[in-house]
């Protein structure tokens, strides 16, 4: 690991100021992604701003909104009684990610900003437009079995690696961001940028901004939700395809549905057209399969990731079956 300056922030405002003083600063929350990528020489901060002790760990319900502090640890959020009951997909997504040890360190805010597991990004001997803008992408014609089939560009096909943000996308979560002008709240999907021609820009965060919380709304739709993760191993592995879904049933029909996909896209991927296809339909395999076909209709595959199209479709059908099971 290269040398860097280490400073501890005693407030969120101080943290933002400390980060802006140098050209390349990184916030240290749980450290699990940052330290890993610093060892890989992918992250090379001049200054690391330790925010891990800031008082942003509360999980609070105010009316119908649950606000989760950005420094709440993944394990604490996953087992929180309110979260598990009101947002099952969130709890399931958190518990499907990483290991017990990593979940004890990793934070909610940091998890939103987790970097891709693309080998060509993580190992500096390869060309990567995300790591070295304009250098090229060795994944395009390389071994791309794990790479994205939705939201890709000619510059980048790196898969968004997270589980939690996929569940948050399906549950229309919002992200609370603190900046010089105060606090702003954006839809989770608006945090993420498609790679386009500039895959080095991954989020809409401005320099000096800090994620301080996420917010979720308590409603029947979100309580009937589920996260399904398909991977090469039974545990401790990233998704090849994952599905977060939520369904509200009314009189034997689907009143409304939410679907988001992970493991197959460059960002947490909300399948809006598939949701529309389910509205008013009966909760049966025919409708589920049609929605799955719609969700993957824009997929663009490379040499080794074509299997993800059918895998994601079957995962969608299975997740919808699960969430509609025992329907009243």
């Amino acid at each position: 690991m290269r040398a860097f300056e280490y400073v501890v922030a005693d407030s969120s405002a101080a943290a933002r100021a400390l980060a802006r003083e140098v050209g390349a600063a990184r916030f240290y929350a749980g450290g699990t992604t940052l330290v890993d990528l610093m060892k890989a020489d992918v992250e090379r901060p001049q200054r690391v701003v330790d925010i891990s002790r800031l008082p942003l760990t509360a999980i609070e319900r105010r009316g119908d909104v649950v606000r989760i502090g950005a420094l709440a640890r993944n394990s604490d959020v996953a087992y929180d009684a309110t979260v598990a009951q009101a947002f099952p997909a969130v709890s399931e997504a958190l518990l499907s990610g990483a290991s017990g040890q990593i979940r004890n360190s990793a934070t909610i805010g940091g998890n939103l900003l987790q970097r891709t597991r693309c080998t060509y990004f993580r190992e500096t001997r390869w060309r990567c437009n995300k790591r070295e803008p304009g250098s090229g992408c060795d994944a395009l014609d390389g071994f791309n079995r794990g790479h994205a089939i939705l939201g890709t560009s000619d510059a980048c096909i790196a898969t968004f690696p997270g589980d939690l943000p996929v569940a948050l996308a399906a549950l229309s979560a919002h992200v609370v961001i603190e900046g010089d002008a105060g606090e702003r709240t954006i839809a989770l999907e608006d945090l993420y940028l498609l790679p386009g021609d500039e895959p080095q820009h991954e989020t809409s965060l401005a320099p000096g901004e800090l994620i301080t919380a996420i917010e979720l709304r308590v409603e029947p739709l979100h309580a009937r939700s589920h996260y399904l993760k398909v991977r090469d191993r039974a545990s401790y592995e990233f998704a090849l395809a994952s599905v977060a879904c939520a369904v509200e049933l009314d009189g034997g029909r689907i009143a409304q549905a939410r679907i988001a996909l992970g493991g197959v896209a460059t960002v947490p991927w909300r399948a809006v057209d598939a949701e529309a296809a389910l509205a008013g339909a009966p909760p049966d395999d025919s409708a589920f399969r049609h929605a799955a076909d719609v969700a993957l209709s824009g997929a663009r595959t490379r040499a080794h990731n074509g299997y993800k199209v059918e895998l994601a479709k079957r995962a969608i059908v299975r997740a919808l079956r699960t969430v509609c099971g025992g329907a009243a």
Partner: peptide, 27 residues
């Protein structure tokens, strides 16, 4: 592995299991 993938470096931090390879000491 020294990269947070094997668990051999697991210790308890304030009673919670943690990977010591993915944590800066000063933190």
């Amino acid at each position: 592995c020294d990269r947070g993938q094997c668990g051999a470096c697991t210790v308890l931090v304030n009673g919670r299991r943690t990977l010591s390879c993915l944590a800066l000491a000063l933190v």
